[in-house]
Design a binder for these strands. Structure first.
Lengths: 162, 162
DNA sequence: AGCAAGCCTGTTATCATATAACATTCTTGT
DNA sequence: ACAAGAATGTTATATGATAACAGGCTTGCT
């Protein structure tokens, strides 16, 4: 029904990074978007971990690797990535994650660990229907739905339960 | 199935304020919580409108009415109200709304107008099940779910469609 | 009443997040 | 080569949130 929420499941993570970059390049190619150096670097930074990264944390990584790093640089790249579905904003943390499967026009939902800030993306398209009809009833035009589930991931749970 | 999302529906709003304050007093009484002057004032401010109000906007209202107004005062009151379910934080706007029906231990979902910041609270308990099981599958312990639907409310829609 | 403990508030300073505004440079199509 | 639009550089500042510690109020106990 939904894909595996990778963040909390063992997997060969190198593949995520390579695939993420390849997907981004393909998507930008297909839509005539410019995946510039700055945007590429920011996406790489996000892809390093299945974790919410703040804009200023992105900025630190940029300056560590010698790049020109000022707030607008990070925010512009992040805005581009979010606008085109290559990354998502985690509202409850004011932070960002790379998208799992860019280009699919999905309805994402996020499992967010409040301890390690790990983020797993799942698909929530099954969930949205009753809410949509509630919106329609009052004439509300839905543009975007954000579903964020906060809690503790398996590694951060104190109890060994599971 | 869900209650009416009041924000976008005509109603006698005076009742919302009175009922909101009465509910808050009853709830605090029942749980031995102190609904102090500062907390009461902040809740009143939130109840004035079915709209997301930023912490510093709350602060302005406080100082306009002669109250001592510094950031921690507003945030402490807001934290109290949110913690006890008398208000909710709208993550995508970093702002707050009074709760529709405090004390019911509900699973709220919000319709949020990106233009006027109007917020309607609906119940989303029907929505959560598939996501819960996805969480359970990976051993993620859900603590809180936030569902925020952004779009345009009937008054802010350019088209008269509806 | 007197007192202690805990809760609440005041105060100052600072951190964190995000954007405005305008200049400059790069890319692309012609 | 050139013009137009896109992207980036730069400075400053708006907006949102908290740390840390001092002081005052409430409550329950004796």
């Amino acid at each position: 029904m939904t894909e595996n929420p990778l963040a909390f499941v063992d997997h060969e993570h190198g593949g995520c990074i390579a695939r993420g970059m390849a997907d981004a390049e393909a998507l930008c190619e297909a839509r005539s978007l410019r995946l510039t150096q700055a945007r590429r670097r920011v996406l790489e930074i996000l892809l390093q971990e299945h974790r919410a990264i703040g804009a200023y944390e992105v900025l630190n990584h940029l300056s560590e690797s010698g790049e020109n790093a000022h707030p607008p640089a990070a925010y512009r790249a992040l805005d581009f990535l979010v606008e085109h579905g290559l990354a998502h904003k985690i509202e409850c943390l004011n932070a960002f994650v790379a998208c799992n499967r860019p280009g699919e026009g999905h309805a994402p939902a996020f499992l967010i660990c409040r301890d390690c800030r790990g983020v797993a993306e799942t698909d929530a398209s099954l969930n949205s229907t009753p809410l949509d009809s509630a919106a329609e009833d009052v004439g509300f035009a839905v543009e975007r739905t954000s579903i964020e589930v906060e809690g503790l991931c398996p590694s951060c749970r104190p109890d060994a339960a599971r």
